[in-house]
Structure formats: C-alpha cells, structure tokens
C-alpha cells in the first residue's frame, strides 16, 4: 500500500497537489468571513427580534458586492478542493487510475455544472427576490 500511495501522488499531478493546498488556505479565510458574517455580525437586521436568518437578511447582505465575491469564491474553492480531494481518493484505486481520462472529464463536468447551479441559487437574493 505505501508504495502505491506514492505512485498515486504521481498520478494526481503537481498542479492538483498545489491547488489542493491553495484552495485549503483560501477556504479557511472564506469560512472565517462566512461564519462571522452569517452568525455574528449585525447588519442592522433582526429588527423583529427574530434570531433566525431570514430571506431579507441574506438579500441585505448580498446587496454588497463583497459578499457576492465571498460566497461565489467560497463555492469555487470548495468545489476545487472537494472534487480534487475526491480525485486523490479515487486514484488510490487501480480501477480508477485505469480510467483516469474519464474520471478527469467527469469531475470537471460535475464541478462546472455545480458551480453554475450554485451561482444561480443566489440570484433571487441578489435581485432582491
């Protein structure tokens, strides 16, 4: 097994290795902003005394370009990191190494479709419902 794992690091490639680290560090930054902004920061919302995050709260936040960038940035990084990580796991198995091209094309497709999906999900908030 150990020698196999070293071999699969070669299969995954140096760029995959590099972007896994880069996306990991960026994720921590995004997560910090995300947690703070969604659960601790006061945007002047919650006027009703209601502590739940409401549709209007999100709309208010996504009025600012900064938070649109944060949300979409976090989505992109999570997809790069998660799918790239999944690729590493798959390439620990011979049956997937043999089908490397299909795995790569498949993961790219999943990533791009999911990114578009995620971008569209926020449209109602950005346009204000």
């Amino acid at each position: 097994m150990p020698d196999q794992r070293i071999a699969t690091t070669k299969v995954a490639g140096t760029w995959a290795w590099f972007f896994q680290r880069l996306s990991a560090v960026l994720l921590v930054v995004f997560l910090g902003i995300h947690l703070y902004a969604s659960h601790f920061m006061d945007l002047g919302e919650h006027e009703s005394g209601e502590s739940l995050i409401s549709f209007d709260d999100v709309t208010l936040r996504l009025d600012q370009v900064f938070y649109i960038v944060v949300d979409y940035g976090m989505l992109s990084m999570v997809l790069v990191h998660g799918l790239n990580g999944l690729r590493t796991v798959l390439f620990d198995f011979d049956m997937f190494v043999k089908r490397k091209k299909y795995i790569d094309v498949g993961l790219w497709m999943v990533g791009i479709v999911t990114l578009i999906w995620g971008i569209v999900i926020l449209f109602p908030f950005i346009t204000g419902g």
Partner: peptide
C-alpha cells in the same frame, strides 16, 4: 456541500420557502 446546495436550491426561490 451537495446536500447544502440541494436544500438551498429548493428554498432560495421565495422568501416564504427560505424562512
């Protein structure tokens, strides 16, 4: 992440659904 997106995609359409 995929569960999160699924849930949100059913709820971001209207304010009632989201809330």
């Amino acid at each position: 992440v995929f569960m999160h997106l699924s849930f949100l995609s059913t709820a971001s359409i209207s304010s009632g659904d989201f809330n």
